[in-house]
Amino acid sequence: MLRVKDISVKISDHLLLDGFSCDFPTGQLCMILGPNGAGKTTLLRCLDGEITPSNGLIELNGRSLSKWTNLELATQRAVLPQHSNLDFPFTVQDVVLMGRTPHDTSEEQDQEIAHCVLAHCDCTHLIDRAFPTLSGGEQQRVHTARILAQVWLRVADQSRFLLLDEPVSALDLSHQYALLQLLQRLAKEQQIGIICSLHNLNLAAQFADRCILIENGRLVADGSAKVVLNKGILSQVFGIEMWVTPHPQNPSIPLIMPTLDHH
């Protein structure tokens, strides 16, 4: 359980998060939604320990986040940042194997895991390529494979968490779907707690176990896609009129698009 209690983040007079509270259990794919500058990335950076909130508390399994060592955290939690540069010519395989650094599993086992996650991220054909020569989307997939490798095996009876900041921002449509399907399955079958920020509301509607909508650093709505992604809330938060209709193939999934007459 990752517990956020009443945190606020203030950076040079700007209140990026304002008394935010939320619990993230394992086994759930939770999407963080909201307009630009709402505080999605700030929340993720608080959860991954990069930002220490000026107020409030974040706990992992009942223990304050700051009390864990980096290594302890690394064995049970992996983080995909929004941007990541790597200018040195590591091969894709090397990059993915770096995800196994915190673990003392055998080299053969690490290799096996690397091949497995690369296959899941559709990167097997890239395995010997130098990372800097890849396209933006390919690089994002390889980084995703790296963080999956990091939490692929459960260590003892520890909980596992994945934090992803806009993991599909550079991916084409089919890879967006493939990744979210994979995340949904990992949450359900492997009991990993996945917290993921996203801009595409329809992807969230289709795959999220739970949606959290943020505006101006405050939690606006929290619940299933059907509850959170309703016309009233979305139109108010994003500032444009929205159409929300049931998905033709599955009425429990809302289908969202802006109305044509909002000019």
Partner: peptide
């Protein structure tokens, strides 16, 4: 080389 945050998240 991946970045400082990345190194921290790797433990």
């Amino acid at each position: 080389l991946l970045g400082e945050s990345e190194a921290r998240h790797l433990g």
